[in-house]
C-alpha cells in the first residue's frame, strides 16, 4: 500500500485553487455555466401547465442539473496534466518526491471542490426559488420527487468524479490540450445515460435503484482512479516514450 503524504496532496490542491482564482477565463466559465444550466429547469418548472403531472413533468428538469457536475470539471481535468506539460511546469514537478497517486489525488480534489460547491449551490438555488416563489402545488410536486432529489445529491460527486478521472486519463496520454479537452468532455458523458433512463421513465426512480446505481458509479470511479494512477508514467510524460526497463 502506497503511503500518501497529506502535506504534498494539500500543496497540489492549494496551488491548483490559487491558479483557478488567478485565471479569469476559468472563473468566468465556472460562474456562467451553472447559471445557464439553472435557467432551463427554472423556466420549465415555473411555466408548468396546470395539467402537468408531477412525476414525469418535474423529473427531467431536475435531472438536467446533473449536467453541471459532468461538464464543469471535464475541461479542467483534461487540462490538468497535458496543460502542465505545455506550460513547461510538469518536469520540475516530477523531479520532486511527489508520488503519482498524490499528484492524481491532489489534482482530482482541486477540480472536485469547486465543482461540488457550484453544483450544490445551483441545486439549492433552484429548490430555494421553487420554495419561495412557485405556486404551492408546483412546489409540492417538486419536493415530492424524493428519489430524484436523492439522486441529485448522490450522483453529483460520483458523476463529477467520473468526469474528473476520465478527463485526467485523457490528459495523461494526450499530447495537446485542445484534443484532451474535447476527448475528456466526450468521455465524461456515458454515465449520464443512466440519468436519461431515469428521466425518461425507462428506469423507475426509487430509493433502492438510486442507491444501487450510486454504488455502481462509486465502484467505477475508484477503479478508474486506480487505472489513471497506473497510467501516470514519468518517462512517458517527460520524453513521450514509454519506459522500458531491462
Amino acid at each position: 500500500m502506497t503511503h500518501l503524504d497529506a502535506t504534498r496532496v494539500r500543496a497540489v490542491i492549494r496551488r491548483e485553487l490559487r491558479d483557478y482564482r488567478r485565471t479569469r477565463s476559468i472563473v468566468v466559465t465556472m460562474a456562467v455555466l451553472p447559471i445557464i444550466f439553472l435557467i432551463q429547469p427554472t423556466l420549465t418548472i415555473f411555466l408548468a401547465p396546470p395539467s402537468a403531472a408531477g412525476d414525469t413533468y418535474y423529473r427531467l428538469p431536475l435531472l438536467i442539473l446533473l449536467l453541471v457536475p459532468v461538464i464543469l470539471p471535464s475541461t479542467l481535468a483534461a487540462y490538468s496534466v497535458v496543460g502542465e506539460r505545455e506550460q513547461g511546469t510538469l518536469e520540475p514537478l516530477l523531479t520532486t518526491p511527489l508520488r503519482r497517486e498524490e499528484f492524481i489525488l491532489g489534482k482530482a480534489a482541486a477540480v472536485m471542490l469547486p465543482t461540488l460547491v457550484l453544483s450544490y449551490t445551483v441545486f439549492g438555488l433552484l429548490l430555494g426559488v421553487v420554495r419561495l416563489f412557485a405556486k404551492p402545488v408546483t412546489a409540492s410536486h417538486v419536493f415530492h420527487q424524493g428519489p430524484v432529489l436523492l439522486a441529485l445529491f448522490l450522483f453529483t460527486p460520483l458523476l463529477a468524479g467520473w468526469a474528473i478521472v476520465v478527463g485526467m486519463a485523457v490528459s495523461v496520454r494526450a499530447s495537446e490540450v485542445r484534443v484532451a479537452q474535447q476527448l475528456g468532455t466526450l468521455a465524461s458523458f456515458p454515465p449520464l445515460g443512466v440519468v436519461v433512463l431515469f428521466g425518461s421513465g425507462v428506469i423507475h426512480p426509487t430509493l433502492p435503484v438510486a442507491v444501487l446505481l450510486a454504488t455502481g458509479l462509486l465502484a467505477a470511479d475508484v477503479r478508474a482512479l486506480r487505472i489513471v494512477s497506473r497510467m501516470f508514467d514519468r518517462e512517458r510524460l517527460v520524453t513521450g516514450a514509454k519506459a522500458v526497463r531491462s
Binding site: T7, A11, L93, T96, P97
Partner: peptide, 12 residues
C-alpha cells in the same frame, strides 16, 4: 507562492 508549492511537495 511558487516556492511554497515546492516546499509542500518536499513535505516541508
Amino acid at each position: 507562492e511558487n516556492l511554497e508549492y515546492f516546499a509542500g511537495l518536499y513535505g516541508l
